Amino acid sequence: MTSSSKTLGEFFDSFECEAFRLETLDDYSKSGNVDAYHAFLAGQPQPSDYNAGWVEELRSHTRAGKRVHRVHILSRPLTDYLSFELGWGYRKNSTGGEEFFILDITDKPNPLAGVPDFWCFDSASVVVMNYDETGKYVGSALLEPERVVEFTGYRDTALAEAEPFVEWWAKYGT
């Protein structure tokens, strides 16, 4: 992995066509939105301004014709965190134009076992997301350019194996 003078936010500010995310963990509760997660667990309603800043950023990209999409690899039954992320996060973020897909490995092997979480921007830059053993985000690393093809292959496999979130949620959502 290489270091980059660009932050993850700067990659979002500068991508031209596509930003793709692969999510592989069952619990990101130590990586952000902690208060919202606790509110969800307590049965509180989702605040109307939940994720407002991210939704507005998504809208700015999608209005400009850019695509932001992700695949989450998961299995059922959902963890409490995944129920929160999908029920509050994905449903809210989709109002900004982000597209979500689910690769449900409940009854099949994971075709991307061992692949880390990552963002891929314009099929040109890959930023691996690093988490500690508790699921806390500890930073990101830009991959060397020669590894981009490997990770776009992971993206393509994930998308080919996944189904649209809306369809999956209609079958399995809570």
Rank of each mutant, 00 (worst) to 15 (best):
S3M: 09
K6T: 03
L8M: 12
G9K: 00
G9E: 13
G9R: 05
E10K: 02
F12P: 12
D13H: 09
D13I: 12
S14C: 07
S14H: 10
F15M: 09
C17S: 15
A19F: 00
A19I: 03
A19R: 07
L25P: 04
D26C: 09
S29F: 00
K30W: 04
K30P: 02
G32Y: 06
N33T: 00
V34N: 00
D35S: 12
A36L: 08
H38Q: 09
A42W: 11
G43Q: 13
Q44E: 15
Q44D: 14
P45Q: 06
P45R: 10
P45E: 08
Q46K: 15
P47V: 07
S48Y: 08
S48T: 03
S48A: 13
D49C: 11
D49V: 05
Y50A: 06
N51G: 10
N51D: 13
N51A: 11
A52G: 09
G53A: 14
G53C: 11
G53Q: 11
W54D: 10
V55S: 10
E56R: 11
E57M: 08
E57K: 04
L58K: 04
R59Q: 13
R59I: 09
R59D: 06
T62R: 11
R63C: 06
R63K: 12
A64Y: 04
G65L: 10
G65D: 06
V68N: 02
V68T: 02
H69T: 01
H72W: 11
H72R: 15
I73Y: 09
I73N: 01
L74A: 14
S75Q: 03
S75D: 04
S75L: 12
R76Y: 08
R76Q: 12
